[in-house]
Design a protein around this nucleic acid. Structure first.
Length: 285
DNA sequence: TATAATGTTAGACT
DNA sequence: AAGTCTAACATTAT
């Protein structure tokens, strides 16, 4: 479900709420998530939330030694600091149908709730019908530091160099998280439409000028989608259950048979790498 | 009932 | 050997 703009939306909203909040309880309702409840999260304060590709990373401080909560023997004065009591990070990936919802008050958890993290101010709920989402405490620090962040621009030279000799479709290249972090099916289709490039082209066949068009296209498409708080075509909602607005700006995705707004021709659908792919055969060469 | 869905990846195939 | 392709994961909606 969520791609870069949707994940970015959630991270910004979480950052308005969570920093300074202390975790009171963690409930894991789906064993497939990849976490258990005793990973030592209780009592930690959230420091910040940020996006890495499509991952939501949550940075936490050391475990609280507040006697009111954990009740260690008083007067002993000496509190052991285990390594597990150091600061730590968790990484959440929503995959296809994951959603986050912020609840205050005592509403019941919605259907398909897989994880609940409770704070004094409210609780953070992970909803995920298809159960592909993952929540990993202490994710491997093999951070893809070299991966480009499309919100900070995609250097055309670097793209060209990386794509050199590759014969996979340029659309698959853009969606490969090892090369570019955050682009998924909707925005790959939209970016290539804006760039005027046929998604079936081999990645290695694009010229410098064409990679520059890709850069310009992503610089236009992605920040606007963030401003619109994401694309709601089926079930995407932000942290507060609100739909996004970017579906009003889609030019090709899910518009098979409808007229291209630039040339009037008919938008076509095909399949690339097993994924639905929409494009205008007249505008995209 | 068959197909497709905003993601990733292990294994098969070139 | 490295690059590319496909099926699989689990579930709902059309």
């Amino acid at each position: 479900m969520p791609e870069l703009p949707e994940v970015e939306t959630l991270c910004r909203q979480l950052n308005e709420i969570l920093p300074g909040e202390k975790i009171l309880a963690v409930e894991v309702l789906d064993p497939r998530l990849g976490t258990t409840e005793d990973e030592g999260l209780d009592g930690r304060k959230i420091e910040r939330v940020y996006r890495q590709g499509k991952y939501i990373r949550i940075e936490m401080g050391k475990r609280s030694q507040d006697p009111g909560i954990s009740g260690p023997e008083k007067g002993r004065g000496k509190i052991k600091q285990k390594p597990s009591d150091d600061r730590l990070t968790a990484a959440l990936h929503l995959r296809m149908t994951g959603r986050l919802l912020w609840q205050t008050g005592s509403e019941p958890a919605p259907p398909y709730t897989r994880l609940v993290i409770s704070f004094a101010a409210g609780r953070l709920i992970l909803i995920d019908p298809r159960r592909f989402a993952t929540f990993c405490v202490r994710p491997s620090e093999t951070a893809p530091a070299l991966v480009e962040n499309p919100l900070e621009g995609l250097p055309p030279h670097h793209l060209k160099k990386t794509a050199e000799k590759r014969r996979l479709p340029v659309k698959s290249f853009l969606m490969d998280q090892r090369f570019v972090a955050g682009i998924g099916n909707i925005y790959a289709c939209e970016i290539l439409y804006h760039a005027g490039i046929d998604p079936r082209r081999h990645a290695g066949s694009l010229s410098d000028a064409e990679w520059r068009k890709v850069q310009k296209a992503s610089a236009a498409v992605l920040p606007r989608a963030v401003e619109c708080r994401g694309t709601t075509v089926s079930d995407w909602r932000d942290l507060f259950g609100m739909s996004g607005e970017n579906q009003n700006h889609l030019e090709v995705y899910s518009r098979e048979g409808k007229p291209c707004r630039r040339c009037g021709g008919m938008i076509q659908r095909t399949k690339i790498g097993g994924r639905g792919t929409w494009f205008c055969p007249i505008c995209q060469k």
